[in-house]
């Protein structure tokens, strides 16, 4: 049961109700511009924001809840992990504050409590407590125009394609998040290109954890291989030295005594 959010950019009026609902649901404090923030409205105290683009385009920005999240694969202690519902959630009792997740996220979503002496990573958790109870996230519930809706991922993908088919002149024929870097649980359909939501306009369809997987799979082989090679070299050289020195003095036993 993979749950998802579909945001229809053409329907968003930029009222920020989702932002307000998110704040209230997650008990986030008031936010003010800090020098360490990115200029996209997200911060440790703003887990979702609305970007205002020319010609009255309002694009909601939030964690994409990747199906194979880079952040979760990067976290050395597994503080970030995917739940069966599809939400990528954060366990602050495990976190050690290395901020590798922030480096790894292709959308630049996770934020940090830079002003705290006990800081945590902050991002949207898809209102995990609510969706566990069968409710929908606060943001989709608050949306007055149904621009952002909640449901099963397969259903929403169908809805998205249906809307594009019904109105091909309006929409760009693409569902953002359907295949990108392995697929995400937050989908977008839009009448403008949404490449600015990530570091690169095109991210490909390969999930990012798979870029590190070959290297990580090679680890045991490298470990054993290096040991074997080193031992082998030592064995050969020792043997050669002993052979050469059989008539002469005894070979070095390898210590520096």
């Amino acid at each position: 049961m993979s749950l998802a959010i579909l945001t229809d950019v053409t329907k968003c009026i930029g009222c920020l109700e989702c932002v307000a609902a998110c704040k209230k649901e997650n008990n986030l404090n008031m936010d003010v511009p800090r020098e360490w923030q990115k200029m996209d409205g997200l911060s440790a105290r703003n887990w979702t924001s609305v970007l205002h683009k020319p010609d009255n385009h309002n694009i909601r920005k939030q964690c994409r809840h990747c199906l194979e999240p880079a952040c979760a694969s990067a976290c050395p202690v597994g503080a970030l992990h995917t739940t069966p519902e599809g939400a990528v959630v954060y366990d602050n009792s495990k976190c050690l504050g290395c901020r590798y997740c922030m480096m790894a996220c292709p959308y630049g979503i996770p934020r940090y409590d830079w002003d705290e002496s006990v800081p945590y990573v902050r991002k949207c958790i898809l209102c995990y407590d609510r969706i566990k109870e069968g409710k929908q996230p606060a943001c989709t519930e608050a949306c007055p125009t149904q621009a952002t809706i909640f449901g099963k991922r397969e259903d929403l993908i169908k809805v998205a394609h249906q809307r594009i088919k019904e109105n091909p002149d309006l929409y760009i024929n693409k569902v953002w998040g359907e295949h990108e870097i392995g697929g995400t649980s937050v989908l977008y359909i839009s009448d403008i290109d949404l490449g600015f939501l990530s570091y690169q306009p095109e991210l490909g369809t390969k999930a990012l954890p798979r870029t590190t997987a070959p290297a990580m799979n090679a680890v045991p082989f490298a470990f054993v291989g290096m040991g074997a090679v080193m031992y082998g070299i030592n064995w050969v050289i020792k043997r050669r030295m002993n052979n050469g020195q059989e008539t002469g003095k005894e070979g070095n036993d390898g210590t520096d005594e």
Binding site: S73, A74, C75, P76, V77, G78, A79, T212, M216
Partner: peptide
Amino acid sequence: HMIIFWNPHSPL
């Protein structure tokens, strides 16, 4: 925490 919480997928 790295000692008790494992995530072998992570290079870190």
